[in-house]
Amino acid sequence: MNKVTAILWGFAITASATIIATIAAPGLNQPHDWTMELKTRQMPLQFEYQGSTLKPVVKTELKFYHVGQEENKTLYEYLWYANEKTLGLERKAKLTIAPGENVAIIVSHESESPPESEVVAAAKAVMNAVLDIEVNQSMVATIKVPTSSFNTICSEIEQYNFHPGSSNPNEEVNSDLCLFVESEAGEKKSLYHYN
């Protein structure tokens, strides 16, 4: 009985370690060289005229910095959205991330309870950032979003032909681009494959 118990305990510990490693493998704890901060805010008093369809306006600000150098953030660009349409871009600097390096994208909102339009804008801005990083020959290590925005952002990501990954680690995935999305506290996670 003691032998059996010992074997069972050994198996349980090993399995647990494997599961934890699998879940934790892609994530903010993964090594990443750069952080890209993406912050959204509502812009009141924009396009205030009769019959305007360009409000409310959401402005997103993207900054990037090398891990460990938070004091040297570079303002990358601004993006504007209204009614789920992308309106404009103002590029403020070039993306000086070396090819091959990993980037973590961290999304935040200025208000604690952002409206859906603001969260959708954040998701669209994430897609722009993902493409810029990929074309720069860098990789997106993880995308960290506020817990309250997690579901909406994931839903929007799926509109861009990203599909939720299978929980079966043995299933073969034929995709050149994977995105790992997690909530800020880490309690929600999703893996997406691009097809």
Partner: peptide, 16 residues
């Protein structure tokens, strides 16, 4: 591998 994603973002920009 990202042409489709890129095309969608172009379409969104044009819609805007």
């Amino acid at each position: 591998q990202v042409v489709e994603l890129s095309q969608k973002l172009v379409d969104e920009a044009r819609d805007g």
